[in-house]
Amino acid sequence: MNFCRLISLLFTALLAVAEPILAAQWTPSLSTIIQGANKEGKLKLMWGEGTLGGTKGAAKFETMMNKMFGTNIKISFTPGAAMPQMGSQIAAEYAAGQSAASDVYIGADSYLAPLVKHKLFHEIDWPRLLPGRITSEMVEGGRTSLRVYTGLPGIPYNTRRTPNGEAPKSLKDMLKPQWKGKIASTPYVTSLNILAAKEMWGKEAALEYVRQLSKQVVGLIRCNEIERVASGEFLAFVMDCSGSQTFEAQAHGAPVEHVIPVDGAMIRHRMLTVPKNAEHPNAAKLFTAFMLTKEAQKQLWDSDFSDMYMFPESQMGQRVRGAEKQGAKFFVPTVDWVAANPEIDAISEEMVKIMTQK
């Protein structure tokens, strides 16, 4: 037997034992999904370029997932619409008996609540796939929705131009005279609507705050326009969506800081779900579970400056614990909470009118 033939036989033998060795690391439930995902061989993903790293993120996650699970799944990523529009598209496709444009849907609690109500997603025992890593506290919406990363709405401000050198600590600080005419908000009252929850301020106090804040605000911007705070066009922004844009700007040297207001601390989540009309459901389930691994969470922080706060190594978790030491008590709206409090939608509309029609 020549040398090349011997090497070829040895390589074949190694491949034959590699799959059982890899499979032995995983639970029977996950091993079954791995096998099904490998047979499917593909995964379709569609969401905005600013989510989960977009095109580059999908390519990195493909390599990492295949290496971890010994699979050979090709991820096809297509930039898509915003989360609400993608949810509506998948719902329309399901109603028409068509395959979902994306095998995985990512959305926030407010977007997911009506979709979960209409039973558009598979119910999955997520903790059985990665026990000790995925816990029941990470699952929402009747076992359909798995938290993938955390948002910490707060107050980004320009550290070089803070009025009187006083950094804000609370939402009520932003009503002080020195901030008038120097701050921005969003036209869609991001997270300010959640202040109306009975677990926080209640409807009347929240509405009155927005009335007072609108008199302080000089401009309305989107959450991804943090550079307008860094440049000094606005000295602060009340409130942002998640903090991640500020953390990214900080990493690039921008003079901005992010404050979690002690009187308005909340934790928001983006969650992954598998539509019932997913073309590659096993690959979708495997990808979703993979996104909760330590390796994927680290990559998520590198690409999106977000991760899931419930893990001990989490960057967001460090910020949550730091804010708690300063006296913050966090409220965590869930898919079920949104479904049980439909009045928040009407309050949101009222707040938007106050903020945009002043």
Rank of each mutant, 00 (worst) to 15 (best):
C4S: 14
A16M: 13
V17M: 09
Q25N: 11
Q25H: 13
W26N: 05
S29A: 15
N38M: 02
L43M: 06
L45H: 04
M46L: 05
W47S: 09
E49Q: 14
E49I: 09
G54T: 03
G54H: 05
K56P: 00
K67C: 01
F69N: 05
G70S: 03
F77N: 04
F77W: 08
I90V: 14
E93H: 01
A95R: 12
Q98C: 03
S99V: 03
V104G: 03
Y105L: 13
S110E: 07
S110K: 11
A113F: 08
V116T: 12
W126F: 15
R128C: 02
P131A: 13
P131S: 08
R133P: 00
R133I: 13
T135P: 00
E137R: 14
L146F: 02
R147Q: 09
R161L: 09
R161V: 01
R161S: 06
P168K: 04
K169D: 09
L171G: 03
D173C: 00
M174Q: 04
K176R: 12
Q178G: 01
K180I: 00
K180W: 01
K182T: 00
T190E: 07
N193L: 11
I194P: 00
L195Q: 09
A205R: 11
A205M: 03
L207S: 03
Q212Y: 01
L213M: 10
V218H: 07
G219Q: 08
E227D: 15
E233N: 06
F237S: 00
C241A: 13
Q245M: 12
Q245P: 01
E248V: 07
Q250R: 11
H252R: 15
V256D: 02
I260V: 12
H269D: 08
A278Y: 02
E279V: 07
F290P: 01
T293F: 07
T293H: 04
T293V: 07
K298A: 09
W301D: 05
P312N: 08
E313G: 07
S314A: 08
G317D: 10
G327Y: 10
V335N: 05
A339S: 15
N341L: 06
N341T: 14
D345N: 13
D345C: 00
I347V: 14
S348D: 07
S348V: 00
S348E: 12
E350V: 08
M351L: 07
V352L: 00
